[in-house]
Simulated scan of single mutants.
Amino acid sequence: MDGGITHIKTWNILYPAYINSKKTIAEGRRISASKACENPTALEIGDCCGHLKIPFAIEIDKAYSRDFMQVGRVRVMLKRPDGSLHNPLVSSKKQLMLRVAELVPRHPGRMKKQEAAVSASNVAPSKPGKGGKKKR
């Protein structure tokens, strides 16, 4: 990495809440809900930054102050020390959030979870006509 780990404190920070479609703006979402993704993790965001060829560091021990139950944040280096961009397609933090939110649903780890959920729901079909209100 050409920026060096010593300057990591100057990198931009991305919390998963910034691109979580389940959050409200008051809870920390920074992009529109329609463009956001569902429950991203710091690891998925980091992988997406790697895919975009943007240097990143995952800080798994850190938590977002508005939602301290979700741990992890990602530090990203959008610009080199000379001011040039690492990825010409990503010139701002906002653009990075939008690009990462597009990529997270296609994350390989997520694809496996979805396949497992689909196969699990097909295994045990529920019985029709059972449940609902009890007769008195």
Rank of each mutant, 00 (worst) to 15 (best):
G3M: 07
K79C: 13
L43F: 12
R99P: 01
L52E: 07
S34F: 02
Q70H: 04
M69W: 02
R106Y: 15
I25E: 13
A42P: 14
Y18W: 10
T6H: 08
C48Y: 01
P81A: 10
V71F: 09
R75E: 06
K62G: 01
V123G: 08
A26V: 04
R29Y: 06
Q114G: 03
G72V: 03
M77S: 05
T24R: 01
T10N: 13
L89T: 08
G28H: 08
S119H: 13
P55W: 01
I45D: 13
M1K: 07
C37R: 03
P88T: 04
D2Q: 10
G83S: 13
G132T: 06
V104N: 12
R110P: 15
R66L: 15
V104G: 09
D82R: 01
A124T: 04
A42V: 05
N12T: 05
I45E: 07
L98N: 08
G131L: 15
V100S: 09
R99Y: 02
K127W: 06
L96A: 02
M97Y: 00
I13E: 06
A120Q: 14
Y15F: 04
H107M: 11
F56M: 06
L78W: 00
I45L: 08
A57T: 03
H51M: 11
W11S: 10
V118G: 00
Q114T: 00
I8K: 03
A63L: 00
K23G: 02
V71S: 10
G50Q: 08
R73D: 05
P16C: 09
Y64H: 09
R29E: 05
R99V: 03
G109I: 04
E27R: 01
I13Q: 05
K93E: 15
L78Q: 01
L43Q: 14
D61S: 12
I60T: 14
R73T: 02
I31C: 09
E44K: 09
L43N: 12
L85S: 09
K93Y: 14
D67V: 00
A26P: 03
K130S: 13
G28Q: 09
D82F: 01
M69I: 02
I58Y: 02
R110E: 15
T41I: 06
G4W: 03
Q95Y: 09
A116V: 02
S34Q: 13
V104P: 14
K127G: 07
F68E: 02
R73N: 10
S21N: 10
G83I: 06
I31G: 06
W11L: 05
I54E: 06
S92A: 12
K113F: 09
I31M: 04
A57Y: 11
Y64V: 00
Y18Q: 07
C49Q: 01
K113I: 08
E59C: 11
S34C: 03
E102N: 08
G132H: 14
L52H: 02
A116T: 00
E59R: 08
P81I: 03
G72E: 11
K135H: 07
E38I: 04
N20Y: 07
K127M: 12
G46S: 11
G109P: 12
P88M: 02
R30N: 04
K127D: 10
K53M: 03
D2K: 05
R29H: 12
C37S: 12
K23F: 14
I58V: 15
P40N: 05
S92G: 10
F56K: 07
L96D: 13
I5A: 07
S84Y: 08
S84P: 12
K113Y: 09
P108W: 15
P81C: 11
I60D: 11
V74H: 06
G50E: 11
M77V: 00
K113M: 14
A124P: 03
